[in-house]
Each structure stands twice: as C-alpha cells, then as structure tokens.
Computed example of a mutant assay.
Amino acid sequence: MRVGVPIFLFLAAAGFHTALTASLESAEKEDTFVGLEQLSDLQKRDQEEFEAAQMSEEENDTQEEDMTDRDGNVEADQHESESDEDVDGMRQKREHLEANVEEADETTNLAEVE
C-alpha cells in the first residue's frame, strides 16, 4: 500500500497537468479564433471602405467626364451657332446678289425692249 500512494499521486498530478495543458491550449485556440474573427471583421470593413472609395472615385470621374462632355457640347453648340450665323450671312449675300442679277437682267431686258 505504501507503493500505491506515490503512484496514485503521480498519476493524479500527471492527469491534472494534462487537463490543465489541454484547457490552456483550448483557451488559446479560442483567443486565436476570436482574434481571427475580429481581424476578419476589420478586413471586411476595410474592404467595404475601399470599395466605397473606389465607387466614389468612379462617380467623380464620371461627373468630370460629363462636365467635360457638356463643355465640349457647349463649345460645339457655340461653333454651330457661329456656323449658322455664317450660313445665314452667306445666304443673305447670295439673295442680295441674286436680286442684283435679276435687276440687271430686267434692266438689260428693258434696254433691249426700248
């Protein structure tokens, strides 16, 4: 019986040590898992913020392109307006010249008739 007590105590201490080690490893894994979960949440948030920033940047680029297009359209409209004015001026000159030619023809016809 004297030999049994030390063996029993040794086995009890070894079991306690094994249980304690397993418990600590389990707690460490849980901490690691919680840490990874928190890290994952942070990464998700960062990714969402990054995507939102990209979308905002694309919208800004699109707005700038729209403004550039509008500016180009305004310039084109001004150019067309100037072209229309030129066409109107040329049309008036042509009509004036045609009227002068008709008058000249009438004058010529009158001179021939007399």
Rank of each mutant, 00 (worst) to 15 (best):
Q47G: 08
E57C: 03
L24Y: 03
T62C: 05
E103G: 11
Q43H: 12
E95R: 05
L97V: 11
V74W: 04
L36S: 08
L24H: 07
A52G: 02
V3H: 14
A19M: 04
E57W: 02
E75Q: 06
E102L: 04
T108C: 12
D66L: 10
E80Q: 10
E85P: 00
T68H: 07
V74I: 11
L97N: 13
G72P: 00
L97W: 11
S81P: 03
E58S: 02
V3T: 15
A104K: 09
L20C: 00
E82R: 03
E106C: 02
R94Q: 07
N109V: 07
D41S: 08
T18A: 01
L36M: 11
E82P: 03
M67N: 10
D66I: 08
Q92F: 04
D66N: 10
K93C: 03
G35M: 00
V5S: 05
L9N: 07
T32S: 11
V5A: 07
V101W: 14
M67W: 07
L24W: 06
Q43W: 12
N100E: 15
G4W: 08
T32Q: 14
T68C: 05
T18L: 04
M67P: 03
A99D: 13
E51L: 13
E102A: 06
S23V: 01
L97E: 13
A76E: 09
D77F: 07
L24I: 05
A19E: 01
S81N: 14
R94N: 02
P6H: 06
D105R: 14
E48Y: 06
A13H: 05
D46F: 13
Q63F: 05
M1K: 14
E95D: 08
G89V: 01
H79A: 15
A22W: 02
V113Y: 13
D71T: 06
M1G: 15
T18E: 04
A19D: 00
E80M: 10
L36C: 02
S83M: 12
